[in-house]
Amino acid sequence: MTATPMPPTAAPSAPAATPTDAPAVHTAALALGDDALVLSHRLGEWAGHAPVLEEEVALANIALDLLGQARVLLSLAGDEDELAYLREERAFRNLQLVEQPNGDFAHTIARQLYFSVYQNLMYGQLAATESALAPLAAKAVKEVAYHQDHAEQWTLRLGDGTAASHERMQHGVDALWRFTGEMFGPVAGLDLDRDALREQWTARVTDVLGKATLTVPEGPQSGAWTAGAGREGLHTEPFGRMLAEMQHLHRSHPGASW
């Protein structure tokens, strides 16, 4: 995002539009925009650390797609830079899944698998509605199809690979399972068939994990306060540290621009 000039007096904690006093479409744009922004930042953390150069480029490209989606969505909800850089943790509405730390490569791929299958189905439904988000959804769904393909191919290779890669992939899939239930919760302004979403997501993920010789986790898909609350602004501990890194430059130099 480009830094837009701001009055030097702008309080660093300038409150952004909160879902409670904004039209429903703002709530929806904020939720989906935050998903894209936060996952984009997480994927960007792989720069310089990916196992091979091709994957470094791939993850950065996926991050760029998500960042582009985030810019459009956040601009629908307000000022993109204010929303990205000047909100406190509790004002973010992203799923807890996307804020989870990268872990090892298999862990990141598991997160990509869960999220890209969801995003592909969700955007697909959204594109067919009259929502103000439909044009973005129609464009983004084509990009996300490649993200999903990328995640599925890696899930197959790692799951049906060596004993070590299988173990790591299974661990990633298991560890993130409890954050998947939140994807099927209601979001104001998003008129989706959530039952179909859950059904199709479960079918696809089950199919891919099966082909990858992995076991579909059996535990709950949400639990206690740790999952199911990102949409309400409750986040897991690592998210605060991620935000600090993402926001500190903009907050330290108000009004800075390229």
Partner: peptide
């Protein structure tokens, strides 16, 4: 206003 930071079509 939002151009050329682009991508802000709906705005």
């Amino acid at each position: 206003p939002e151009a050329p930071s682009a991508a802000a079509g709906p705005k």
